[in-house]
């Protein structure tokens, strides 16, 4: 225990839990993120209940583009789990392929989102225009920020796979990044119907 190998070098598995620090840590972080996005959904529900009429998503938002975005994010969820699978099978080439695919899909998602927002701004629809748009911009904005965070993490892992492919903690970190990315996808799975379809 007191050896110089600092805590960070060996994947420490909890004696009683059988879970590595990284996995427990990322699940704790996702727990707090669930609370964060649940608060945004509570706000959305409370604001909607408080108002007598609420615009339908169809006539305000671009639903086809939203659908495409959802499919993009789902595909990226698949590619990130494939990347994790290849990391376990120690196939670096395929890992880098799938991870770059994930990053590409993430960037595509942001581009489509940026285009959609641009469309709204062009029509003069800003967060201050109506409470529906305020909720829309806040929720999709905070989600986009989380997507950007995930992209940065994934790119760092892609870049690290060059030098630290054999680092004992590398697979744990890929798993953690994958779990976070799946969470970001799940938030969008709930966000899309709530804002666009109801």
């Amino acid at each position: 225990m007191s050896s110089e190998a600092a805590v960070m070098d060996v994947p420490h598995v909890g004696a009683s839990t059988g879970v590595t620090n990284a996995k427990l840590g990322i699940w704790l972080f996702l727990a707090s993120e669930v609370m964060l996005f649940s608060t945004l959904f509570t706000t959305y529900i409370v604001l909607r209940l408080g108002s007598s009429s609420w615009p339908r998503g169809w006539n305000v938002l671009n639903v086809p583009l939203g659908t495409v975005n959802t499919l993009v994010l789902i595909t990226s969820s698949v590619t990130v789990v494939m990347a994790y699978a290849k990391a376990i099978e120690r196939k670096r080439g395929q890992f880098r392929l799938f991870m770059s695919l994930t990053i590409a899909l993430g960037v595509l998602f942001l581009i489509l989102k940026g285009f959609e927002w641009g469309q709204h701004f062009h029509n003069g629809e800003f967060p201050s225009t109506s409470i529906f748009l305020a909720a829309y911009f806040t929720m999709t904005g905070l989600h986009a920020l989380h997507v950007i965070g995930g992209l940065i993490t994934n790119s760092i892992l892609l870049w690290l796979s060059e030098t630290q492919w054999d680092h004992p903690l590398f697979i744990g970190r890929v798993e953690a990044a994958g779990l976070y990315w799946h969470f970001v996808d799940i938030v969008w799975i709930f966000l899309f119907p709530a804002l666009y379809l109801l």
Partner: peptide, 19 residues
């Protein structure tokens, strides 16, 4: 829901009408 009686209903206009 319980205090909806206290709040004069605020109609949320669609984005287009609001602008």
């Amino acid at each position: 829901i319980a205090t909806s009686g206290r709040r004069p209903a605020q109609a949320v206009t669609t984005a287009v009408e609001a602008t």
